[in-house]
């Protein structure tokens, strides 16, 4: 029974599936990276993702257009991010409290609205999801053609954001500004950088990309909205950023590891291995715990988590 599990076709399918399970957490992690690097804990990602998953589905369902769903997800994520930025940057609240409150707000609001909008429809409401787009030429390459170049457009986008983010953070004045604000807000302020504006912008980026990661789940994975469907992926993205040492390439590597774990547990469930499926479902959570322990006290931006008040 385990033999076909490790055939070439099976491994290609697993790797291809890994790309798809990686994309939503990678999108969220890249977004969170901006927020973290500017000094604001990306602890609200789970909330941004949930809001994006719901708004994305609602937008796509009522308009019949997936891209309108994506736009709705971006807006919903950014709206929540604005609330989070207001409390963590302007009010100077505890970011842990504000972020957790945000997740609770998103969970409650999406659950409430889901029941208000769809309670009467007895049958399952769904959308036609994003389809794989084969990249001409490259998709014909053996093995990697199927794994890397026959994916939906959101997967391409997620991976394209990695070098782009690296370039922005390390090769542009804007990136230097973001990193300065996150390392030493007072010094950045002294040399004339706008700490508040930078942090708001970065948190909004994390809201947009978190929302996009959530929309991936409803529009490219499950084809519908299910309450709490993010299943702590936002918190995993938060852990992935730390495990990836606050660097986009590291975040990609860590996301792939999580994607592989997720794809593997799905595959093992389908294959019917003689292990209770609960233990397979536990796997990504245990992996996150292990990653947090291994990452330990890494190279967090020095001003991460502390609000900056001008005197």
């Amino acid at each position: 029974m385990l033999e076909p599990l490790f055939s070439l076709t099976s491994i290609i399918a697993l790797l291809s599936s890994t790309m798809r399970t990686t994309a939503p957490v990678l999108l969220a992690a890249i977004g969170g990276l901006f927020s973290d690097r500017s000094g604001v804990l990306s602890i609200g990602l789970e909330g941004f993702m949930l809001a994006g998953a719901f708004a994305g589905f609602v937008g796509a369902f009522y308009s019949g257009n997936l891209w309108i769903g994506i736009a709705a997800a971006l807006i919903a994520g950014m709206l929540l991010a604005f609330v989070y930025a207001y409390f963590s940057v302007s009010v100077g609240s505890s970011q842990a409290v504000a972020g957790t409150g945000l997740v609770m707000l998103a969970a409650g609001a999406t659950g409430f609205l889901n029941r208000v909008l769809f309670r009467s429809s007895g049958n399952f409401v769904r959308v036609t999801p994003f389809q794989p787009v084969a990249i001409p030429g490259l998709s014909r390459l053996p093995i990697i053609g199927q794994v890397l170049f026959t994916q939906n457009v959101l997967v391409y986008l997620a991976f394209a954001l990695v070098p782009l983010t690296w370039f922005i953070l390390y090769r542009t004045a804007l990136g230097l500004q973001i990193r300065s604000v996150g390392e030493h807000a007072k010094a950045a302020d002294t040399v004339g950088l706008n700490v508040t504006l930078t942090r708001y912008a970065c948190v909004l980026v994390s809201g947009a990309l978190g929302g996009l990661g959530g929309a991936y789940l409803s529009l490219a994975h499950a084809n519908t909205f299910i309450e709490m469907m993010t299943a702590e992926r936002g918190y995993m993205a938060f852990a992935i950023i730390i495990f990836g040492k606050y660097n986009p390439w590291g975040a990609m590597g860590a996301s792939l590891l999580f994607g592989l774990a997720d794809a593997l547990q799905l595959k093992l469930q389908v294959a019917g291995v003689p292990v209770p499926y609960e233990f397979l479902l536990m796997f990504p959570y245990v992996l996150t715990l292990a990653a947090m322990v291994m990452a330990g006290k890494t190279t967090a931006p020095a001003a991460l988590g502390s609000a900056y008040k001008k005197n």
Binding site: F238, Y285, M292, V293, A295
Partner: peptide, 12 residues
């Protein structure tokens, strides 16, 4: 090891 208790407790 300084692991964020927010993440670890959510996972647990």
């Amino acid at each position: 090891v300084g692991a964020s208790e927010i993440v670890t407790t959510v996972m647990m």
